[in-house]
Amino acid sequence: MGVSYQAILWNKSKKRYDLWMSLFIILVLAVFVLAQMTLHPSITIETLIIRATAFTAITLLHIILIIGPLCRLDSRFLPLLYNRRHLGVTMFLFALVHGLFCIIQFHTLGDTNPIASVFLSNQNYQEISEFPFQILGFLALVILLLMAATSHDFWLKNLTPRIWKGLHMAVYIAYALVVGHVALGTLQYESKPLYWVMLLGGFVVIAGLQIFTGLREVKRLRSTSEKTKDKFVKVCNFDDIEDSRAKIVTIGSENIAVFRYDGQISAVSNLCRHQLGPLGEGKIVDGCITCPWHGYQYFPHNGQSPPPFNEKLKTYEVNIRGNDVWVDPKPKPPGTFIQPAKLEGSAS
């Protein structure tokens, strides 16, 4: 970034996103509360709050985890990704309310510190049927807190995108802990198989989508041409790239987005400086490469963000021989101008 931070950089899209998110959450809560009151007419308000916040948090967690692979399968899901961080923070707040109500209801009546009580009230670690599942939920909540607390771009910049991304990949550990928390809790307190079915269904969907998109990515990486000439590697034909779009290629350790625009070709790093989003899945808008995740922009010929922003991408030398596009996989320093390669006979 190159401008002062704001708490939230509101725009029309984010407001629309949050409105739809709020409506969805209200719907989930309403359906769940109605179902609980029908199935358990004598349910107390505390138990209802504990269950409803847990259900909403888990539902949001599942949605968060499937947004990424869905976007890779179909770009029509990209709007869901745009403001995923608000979804994440909202999910944490529901999990926090759930955790606080559980601690108040189950751990404040004795003379032990309530948080210590979470770890001490049940120490049957040897018995799977009596395992203290609360601890798993507590640890998941700590991870979610860390992620929510670092969701602002201030942290992305100051922890560096790589560390920030690594930190936020802990969502999978949190998910595993949540699955353990719910599965063991259900085992101890619920005789109906409904919760097991829902948990297993959610796991199958998340794991299935992640594995499927992962395998597709591996296949794509393997399909990259390795035909070399001088220092250049042939990556595709000019016509293989749609106008204002890119082809993503991986040569050695370099993940490169080769863009076609105005009858010419430029190549930059495929990783957005914001959250390492796949730039090659974006398109050229107003003369700039535009990240499909959050709209960060870069000039294709030098990888620099338009002023006042100062993010820079690595750039790569390119040329066109006949109809073939060739890329030198040795990156130039971020922000280096590279003359775009033009198709012979192109007027642009």
């Binding site: 970034m1 401008v3 002062s4 931070y5 704001q6 708490a7 939230i8 201030f154 910049k157 100051n158």
Partner: peptide, 11 residues
């Protein structure tokens, strides 16, 4: 982080 100069209290 110099970009925090002028940032509002909410940030």
């Amino acid at each position: 982080d110099p970009d925090t100069v002028g940032a509002p209290v909410s940030f």
